[in-house]
Every structure is written in structure tokens, then in C-alpha cells.
């Protein structure tokens, strides 16, 4: 996994609550058996006016000029500013892969749906939870300015914006560490292999019916 330490980038303000994973990457793109190729269909039904399909050339499609991602001010963005309950709905990790492949490294929102939040950490995408008032303020600036540049520092858990006080955010220490180091999730659990084996022996004795069909 790609580590996340310090990232400087431009913010795209996506001013909608309850952005669900069906919107982040629509279902027709889930047919792929690969982990890549989802970036160009990020927010497909919102970015384009025609219906997207696997293999359709994005350059030949009709662009939805109304959608914030197509606003000339928000090109080359890598930080997404969102509203409450971001990433709700389906568990599809493809949503995180699509965001990353599109170039988004960090999502800032007042709250996230649980599965999406989890999936972010497995892939090196940093979800940052910030209080509603500050989010409101950031939307104001991001919509006004030509392009809002933010420096995200995971080590110090802060966002730096020019001519503003630093904004600090909370993150569970146990989630921060693996992300900073880019640790392999499975490898981390394998360090507990003996414990798993011992548990399994006890569990099998206590509830043999679970293992009856092995």
C-alpha cells in the first residue's frame, strides 16, 4: 500500500450530502476483474450526460458542464471536500480505487459511512473528519477562490491553508501508523498467526458444529 505522509493539492468541493458509492463508481464498471481502470469512470453519471459503459472513450463523450469536476477551476485536483455520510451504500472498494486512480488522495468530510471509511485505509486514501462549521467555511473558500490549495500533514494531523490558522483533525492512532508506513494489512495480522491458531483450537472445542463441514 502507498504510504501517506504529507500531501499538497487542490481541493474540489462536492457540495452534496450522502454521496453513495453507486455514484462514485456506477455498477456497470464493477464487472472488471482488475483493480485498475476505474478512474476514468469516477462519478460517471454526474461527469457525463450520456450513459457510461466499459470501454467507451471518455474523449468522445458528452460532458456535463454543470458538475463541479468539469469546472475549469477544479482541474488537477487531489483533495475532495464532501458533506455528511460520504461513501454510504454499497461496500464496493472499487469506489476507493476509482478515487485514487483519478488522483484523489484525501477526502475531507464531516462524516463517513463505516465500510467506505475502512476501505480507504486499506488503500492509502486518507479520509479526514472535520467539524461541520469548518467544512462549511472550507466550502465557502473553495467555491470562491480560483483554487484552494491545502497541505495535509498526517504526522501532525493538520491541514495548512495559506493565510489561515492550521486546522487539526483527529485520527485513531492505530489507523494512522499503518498509513504513514504503508504497512501490508495481511502481514500485520499474520504477526498474530499463533494467536489465531490457538483461538481456532479453543473455538473448535467450544462450537464444533461450526467446523462440521470443513
Amino acid at each position: 500500500m502507498k504510504p501517506f505522509k504529507l500531501h499538497r493539492g487542490t481541493v474540489v468541493p462536492l457540495d452534496r450530502a450522502n454521496v453513495d458509492t453507486d455514484q462514485i463508481i456506477p455498477k456497470q464498471f464493477l464487472k472488471s476483474v482488475k483493480r485498475t481502470g476505474f478512474g476514468e469512470n469516477l462519478f460517471d453519471a454526474w461527469r457525463f450526460n450520456d450513459e457510461g459503459e466499459i470501454g467507451k472513450n471518455p474523449n468522445e463523450r458528452e460532458i456535463n458542464r454543470e458538475f463541479v469536476f468539469n469546472d475549469p477551476r477544479y482541474q488537477d485536483v487531489s483533495i475532495l471536500l464532501g458533506r455528511q455520510n460520504f461513501g454510504c451504500g454499497s461496500s464496493r472498494e472499487h469506489a476507493v480505487w476509482a478515487l485514487l486512480e483519478f488522483g484523489i488522495r484525501c477526502v475531507i468530510a464531516p462524516s463517513f459511512a463505516d465500510i467506505f471509511y475502512n476501505n480507504c485505509f486499506k488503500n492509502g486514501l486518507l479520509p479526514i473528519v472535520i467539524k461541520e462549521e469548518i467544512i462549511e467555511n472550507l466550502f465557502g473558500i473553495a467555491k470562491d477562490q480560483l483554487a484552494l490549495e491545502v497541505e495535509v500533514n498526517l504526522e501532525t494531523q493538520s491541514l495548512s491553508i495559506e493565510a489561515m490558522d492550521d486546522i487539526f483533525f483527529e485520527i485513531e492512532p492505530g489507523r494512522k501508523e499503518p498509513l504513514l508506513l504503508g504497512l501490508d494489512d495481511i502481514g500485520m495480522t499474520f504477526m498474530h498467526s499463533d494467536q489465531i491458531r490457538e483461538f481456532e483450537v479453543r473455538h473448535r472445542q467450544a462450537m464444533p458444529w461450526i467446523f462440521d463441514h470443513d
Partner: peptide
Amino acid sequence: VVGQRSDGTILYIDQHLLHEVTSPQAFE
């Protein structure tokens, strides 16, 4: 509960169900 990892509790899983959409990349 099997044990603790710095980022959460390690839980033993009894039953795992799989389907074609979310598993290919896991097998890969």
C-alpha cells in the same frame, strides 16, 4: 476476539460468503 492489533480487534470469522463482483481482486 483473537487479539488486538494497533488499529482494532482481530475477530475470528466463522463463515465467509463470496460472489463474483467483489472477489476477483482478492484472489488476485
